[in-house]
Every structure is written in C-alpha cells, then in structure tokens.
C-alpha cells in the first residue's frame, strides 16, 4: 500500500459507519445503503488519488459525495420510497432481553420513519449534529450557509421531528 492508500484506509475506517448510517437513514434499505456507501467511498478514493491535498475536511468531502449520490438515486427512482425486505437495520445491540430489544427496535423504527418525513436539509442537519456530534460551524461549511442559519435549522428540524413523532404515537 502506498501513502495515499494508507491515508485513505484510515479515512475509510473513521467514516464508514457514519456514512453508512447517514445513507441508510435516507434510503431505508440495507442493500441500497450498502450500494450507495460503496459508491461514496469509491468516488472519494478516485478524487483523493488525484489530489489528496484538496481534501481539507474529510467528513465534509465524503458527506458531500453521499448527498449527491443519494440525490441522484432519488432522481432516478422518481423519488419513490423503496421499502425492501431487509428494511430492518442491522442493530448492534448488546442487551439480551427480548422485551428490551423489542422496545428499542420499535423506538428506532419510529424515529427512523419520522426522520424520513422531514425535509432533506433537516434530516441531514439532525443526523450530523445529534448523531455524529458535528459542530455547527462544520455543518455550516458543508451546506455553505452561515452558522446562525444552521442553528435556526436545527431548532426547526427538532420541532418538525417532534411533530412527526407525536403524529405517529
């Protein structure tokens, strides 16, 4: 492995879970999420090889590719929501009680489906900020918007999510 491969291998290890989760929450299918995530890293690797110095923020770089590929995917599918047989995600759950698992899974399913009804930008911002603990400034950089706007969007996104969840229960 040369220097670039080594570096990209580290980036891959650092971001694979995050990018997969980000994509999965948008497409709700393990198979499609795997396919899109592979494309994200393959495209990322091709760009990285050409000019590694150009990639200043690895997270922003990969999330941007992921956003574009997911957009293309929905454009091709005519924004049809695909629910495949493997709809239920692979959950890393250390608890053993079946009852506990059922509660957790139903909670996850509920939040997941509520998230899918939100506007695309709200989805992205909530995932980045609350799931991946990305600071407001970094989100602002990815979306090319002022930090103040992002704060407002986080607030509105949470409100929209709360409304969705209350409709579901």
């Amino acid at each position: 492995m040369d220097g670039n491969s080594e570096q990209f291998s580290l980036i891959y290890d650092r971001y694979i879970e995050k990018i997969y989760r980000f994509v999965y929450l948008k497409v709700s299918s393990q198979e499609i999420a795997e396919d899109i995530t592979s494309k994200v890293f393959l495209n990322g690797w091709k760009s990285y090889q050409k000019d590694p110095g150009k990639v200043k923020n690895e997270g922003a770089f990969l999330y941007q590719i992921a956003r574009n590929i997911v957009t293309d995917y929905y454009r091709e599918r005519g924004r049809t929501k695909l629910i495949s047989t493997d709809f239920v995600p692979q959950i890393a759950d250390t608890r053993t009680g079946l009852h506990e698992k059922a509660i957790i899974n139903s909670d996850i399913d509920m939040v997941k489906s509520a998230m899918q009804n939100l506007k695309k930008d709200y989805q992205d911002i909530l995932i980045w900020h609350y799931l991946e603990e990305m600071p407001v400034a970094e989100i602002a950089e990815i979306l090319n918007k002022p930090a103040g706007t992002i704060r407002v969007m986080i607030h509105r996104g949470l409100k929209a999510l709360r409304d969705e969840l209350s409709q579901e229960t």
Binding site: I16, Y20, Q90, D107, I108, K112, I127, Y130
Partner: peptide, 11 residues
C-alpha cells in the same frame, strides 16, 4: 430518541 439511531451499523 434521535441518538438511539447510532445503533444502526453496517455489517
């Protein structure tokens, strides 16, 4: 609730 989605992980 939102953070419970962290349990989604790839194979």
């Amino acid at each position: 609730k939102l953070q419970s989605l962290k349990q989604i992980k790839p194979r």
